[in-house]
Design a protein around this nucleic acid. Structure first.
Lengths: 227, 227
DNA sequence: CGCGGCTTTGATGTTCATCAAGTAAAGTGG
DNA sequence: CCACTTTACTTGATGAACATCAAAGCCGCG
């Protein structure tokens, strides 16, 4: 836990436009950075909402715990995504958990500061509203996208998701386990593996442990679209 | 299409707290009400976002169209729920459609007015943020709830949803078709019917056409929880 | 080294979608 | 208001998709 050097902090450049230099400096001087290792909990379902968090670097998963010890992954977040989403401004406790799936750094700002700034500054508040809505929008539409696909379509979809939105490369090291893919797309681990194996046998992807190379993008896209 | 008499409009009482009398009156004097019959489109996916809408009376469904002519229902909205959700403040076109499933009246406010008010009034803007987030929150968590259940659990869940959140009564006329239930819970119409039939045979519900009477709430709740 | 979790494959059974066909209900035009 | 068309509802039969159970190899970690 350490204060960040904000002189080149991206918050300044891209967080919001409608905020004064003074306010930015005030926030920057009081915000705190925290580092997390792969697998660390960043926050737990039920935790009191104290800070507003965004991800400075790394990759994390947002998920909820179920009765029977199973987890449902809501979304993945990448650098500069907000981690405080859903009803963080109206609720008292987090309704979901966050875990780092790669070494990550979060930027923590006292919720009270955001709240105060928002109350004083309509434009800032409206920016916040827009960004928060966009995030929920993405999560909802994405879950509908996944839901309308069958097993192979879902696995194809998530591979393309990592290719296009996280790594921008046809070859990448899958940051999550097969089990986590399953928890995200709502299928079992075994069947995720079976789908991957089939893609491999059909020469659509190559698998080297965690590393996936998509060799036939067109066909993978077709499977994602039409099952 | 008509101006509403706002003297007793609920907008005044419950819309937001942090808004001045002048502003409320200004909005009220310019807002427009529209009436829709059962089955009418209130707006269509792709429509330009011009107004901010909330539901004054009736019941509607929010849904998206898919390639193959199928619909996925995102949520139902009841009186005083916002109909303009997701990225209505940042996007230019609606990403979903809304249809009245009962005779409904919407209240339409120029988006520009909301935007202006929000920019000027941080507290109002923050209220808006809170309410918008709460809605998305509900949609996301509800979809996770549904997703973790099997067919019978899902049907039980939606029956209890109508009982608890829409009608507050164990007997009610289902406002939606079996097909729409299917589109909401992500199963086929036939299987929704089979689940209902089975509930009827097990003396958990009674069915009189569209009218459902839940006679064994405990058992229905148990099915909703444990499949 | 050994333990626990992740991965993989296979066998089996359940759940669910699809297809088909018929009845009921609701809307439509003469 | 009736014939007509369409849409909703229902049931059954069948097969595909997927979950579950089991077992074994692999890998990382203390």
């Amino acid at each position: 836990m350490e204060k960040c050097n904000c002189s080149n902090c991206e918050l300044k450049a891209m967080f919001f436009e409608n905020i004064s230099k003074d306010d930015i400096n005030s926030i920057c001087s009081r915000k705190i950075e925290k580092s997390f290792d792969k697998g660390d909990y960043i926050l737990s379902q039920g935790d009191e909402i104290m800070d507003f968090l965004y991800l400075k670097s790394g990759l994390v998963k947002l998920f909820i715990h179920n009765e029977n010890d199973k987890e449902q992954i809501i979304a993945f977040a990448k650098p500069f995504d907000f981690l405080s989403i859903l009803s963080v401004f109206s609720g008292k406790y987090y309704s979901y958990s966050i875990k780092a799936i790669e070494k990550s750094v979060t930027c923590n700002i006292k919720m009270e500061e955001i709240r105060k700034l928002a109350a004083e500054n309509g434009a800032f508040s409206f920016d916040l509203l827009q960004r928060m809505s966009l995030i929920s929008d993405k999560i909802i539409l994405e879950s509908l996208e996944i839901r309308k696909r069958n097993l192979k379509g879902r696995v194809a979809y998530i591979l393309l998701f990592f290719k296009n939105h996280i790594y921008q490369a046809a070859e990448f090291e899958l940051p999550i386990s097969r089990k986590e893919i399953a928890e995200y797309i709502g299928m079992t681990t075994e069947n995720v593996i079976r789908a991957l194996t089939e893609f491999r046998k059909d020469n659509i992807i190559k698998i080297y442990g965690k590393v996936i190379e998509i060799t036939d993008i067109k066909r993978l896209e077709s499977i994602s679209k039409h099952g």
